[in-house]
Design a binder for these strands. Structure first.
Lengths: 234, 234
DNA sequence: AGCGAGCAAATTGCACACAAAGGACGATCC
DNA sequence: GGATCGTCCTTTGTGTGCAATTTGCTCGCT
């Protein structure tokens, strides 16, 4: 394990954190997967101490579930949580666009345009395209210079990947590229209202069109309660 | 500092976390204060390991600054960050009231009314009154059943205490009790628009009326650069 | 005096060791 | 045959030791 001095500007636990985060977002580790401290540490060449620290951080970010004495697993949000999450996202991203409308510098505009082009180019590769779509949103957030806003949007976008991984329709293009373009146009034009509406619609359409329940995890309780009722139980 | 076995459903690091959080919010530890792992652990009767874990959590919550090799200090947000934070809060709490408008159960209404009464009663005690005012907002968030929303509002409310501790006008009543009452009335009446506006105004008035710069920490760099220029340095 | 090298104290970074909890498996007892 | 209990094994919880880094201070040099 390369331990070249500059491993990171900072402690190695950050490196572990990033590695795991990346793995999760890439779906190399799928929701529900166990994350034993030992094996991870071994694999990454660090002690459990550091892995543990990274796991704590990830759990604070909502990417990992940490259950006492039972260890860590990749988070497995419910569909309900997913919907709520997108609601929260909408609230925050609304603030993003309101802040940005009419205030983008040329440089920022270029950055965003380039990104949209990249999204368009990568349209075929499902995985890449999801990642890029997310990045567009974090990119926007970044431009607000509002630290807490940036942090939360980043976090929610990351978690959205999990949601989509679990409940996303197989081949839907979750973030229509054209919608990003329209949004950008509104922002440039300084039409805060329009941009706001577009963003709201954009996110809303994900929950209504792209998310759908999976058979295999209709809540066990729900399933059982139906059967229970049929049998006059509970 | 009760340390009775049942400390919490969970590990003792949670207890440490809560203890520190409480201490910070009570301003027993003021912004900028050093938080050495050793002394804290000693004082709380746990090892550095647990303290460390708690500190990591607190830093994720933004209550503590964690700098590599330099240890932890109670966070010291800038005024600018403070303003942005309230902007973010407004965006989220807007969602809270929109979600809740016209949907409160009688029980919830009672809870909120009782809380407002308590706020009114404690109006004299500055510290208590700040805490209660914050709790009103977290209470509202709680009622949305939206996990991420709840988490973020809690976090932001907590951080708001820090901001107010640093930049709050000495004797301003940061959250006018009457405003909470009005807000509740609108929510009960199901007037989402009104409630939304009230909340926005409520939070906005804090930033415009209650926050003011402090002399002693005009950004050190700014201050110094002025002096440096005067002296022909840098 | 002023300045910097270098030493010493305090603190963090990290790994490891041991204790305890949870779970799997098999023996035992109705 | 099935349920229950006990034992072993795996994984987590927590304390402690040692290395590394930072910081402040002293001392000698200019």
């Amino acid at each position: 394990m390369a331990k070249t001095v500059g491993d990171s500007g900072r402690g190695r636990s950050q490196a572990v954190h990033r590695a795991l985060k990346r793995a999760i977002l890439d779906q190399a580790l799928s929701p529900g997967a166990k994350l034993p401290e030992d094996s991870i540490g071994e694999r990454l060449g660090v002690s459990r101490t550091l892995v543990r620290e990274a796991l704590v951080r990830l759990s604070e970010e909502g990417l990992v579930d940490l259950r006492p004495n039972k260890g860590a697993t990749v988070a497995r949000p419910t569909l309900e949580e997913g919907r709520n999450l997108f609601l929260t996202r909408a609230a925050l991203e609304r603030l993003v666009v309101e802040t940005l409308a009419g205030k983008l510098t040329q440089e920022q505009i270029d950055t965003l345009s380039a990104h949209i082009a990249a999204e368009d180019a990568a349209r075929k590769e499902h995985a890449t395209s999801i990642r890029l779509a997310g990045e567009f949103h974090t990119l926007l957030a970044q431009m607000t210079n509002n630290a807490s806003l940036i942090r939360y949007v980043n976090e929610l976008v990351a978690r959205s990947s999990l949601i989509l991984a679990l409940y996303g329709r197989p081949h839907s293009s979750e973030c229509a590229v054209s919608e990003h373009q329209e949004l950008l146009d509104s922002l440039i034009a300084g039409k805060a209202e329009d941009a706001s509406k577009l963003m709201a619609h954009h996110l809303d359409s994900i929950t209504t069109r792209a998310l759908l329940p999976r058979e295999e995890d209709r809540n066990i309780k729900d399933v059982l309660s139906a059967y229970a009722a049929a049998e006059g139980l509970a």
